[in-house]
């Protein structure tokens, strides 16, 4: 088996914590992992992406080959479209609906969403709203990770463990509220 995920967003939105949770779950399930990140200049509000590759055998390339991503998981709608050439024929495009507007020529929101809806397999979710509803306004990332979990063949409990691992130094309340966000994202993906 293999799962190739493009994580997308804007520098500062924290896509790497999603990669860490899924990555932790993969490694704890005895799978191989490669994860290419963007560090440096782009982190200052530019477009950023991470290639997360999981497989049950050795992985060669740190980059996902074009047309081979099983999923584009984006915390920002326009950014999800930037990586379409990577998407496999049966791949899923999963995006948060809240735009991050820090450029003057950001396209009209409805056009962005319309482009996403053109994809055969897509899931749009109001992740910021869902995070607020479960009382974790900063948990948007974990909502997105939870939504992705529906399409990833790794035990969900391992992702919960991943959250416990990442936030272990920050107290039980923080752990619980991030697990709540993860579960809410998963629930939304199953119901919609």
């Amino acid at each position: 088996m293999k799962i190739d995920i493009i994580l997308a967003g804007v520098g500062g939105q924290g896509i790497l914590s999603i990669a860490t949770v899924i990555g932790y779950a993969a490694v704890e399930s005895g799978l191989f992992l490669k994860q290419a990140e963007v560090h440096g200049m782009s982190q200052r509000g530019g477009d950023v992406q991470s290639h997360l590759r999981i497989a049950d055998r050795d992985i060669y390339s740190d980059l996902i080959p074009a047309g081979n991503a099983d999923m584009i998981l984006s915390v920002e709608p326009m950014e999800s479209l930037r990586y379409l050439p990577y998407l496999a024929k049966n791949g899923w495009l999963i995006s948060n609906t809240t735009p991050f507007v820090n450029i003057p020529d950001y396209p009209p929101e409805e056009q962005v969403l319309a482009e996403i809806r053109k994809q055969t397999h897509h899931l749009l979710l109001p992740a910021d709203e869902i995070a607020r509803e479960v009382g974790n306004p900063r948990g948007m990332n974990m909502v997105m990770a939870g939504a992705a979990s529906r399409f990833i063949d790794i035990p969900f409990e391992k992702m919960e463990e991943g959250i416990r691992f990442i936030f272990r130094g920050k107290g039980e309340a923080i752990v619980a509220s991030n697990i709540a966000a993860l579960q809410a994202g998963r629930k939304y993906a199953i119901e919609n």
Binding site: M78, Y106, P107
Partner: peptide
């Protein structure tokens, strides 16, 4: 419609 998003001062 996808616009470039260069880095910027915080």
């Amino acid at each position: 419609i996808v616009a470039g998003r260069p880095p910027a001062l915080c």
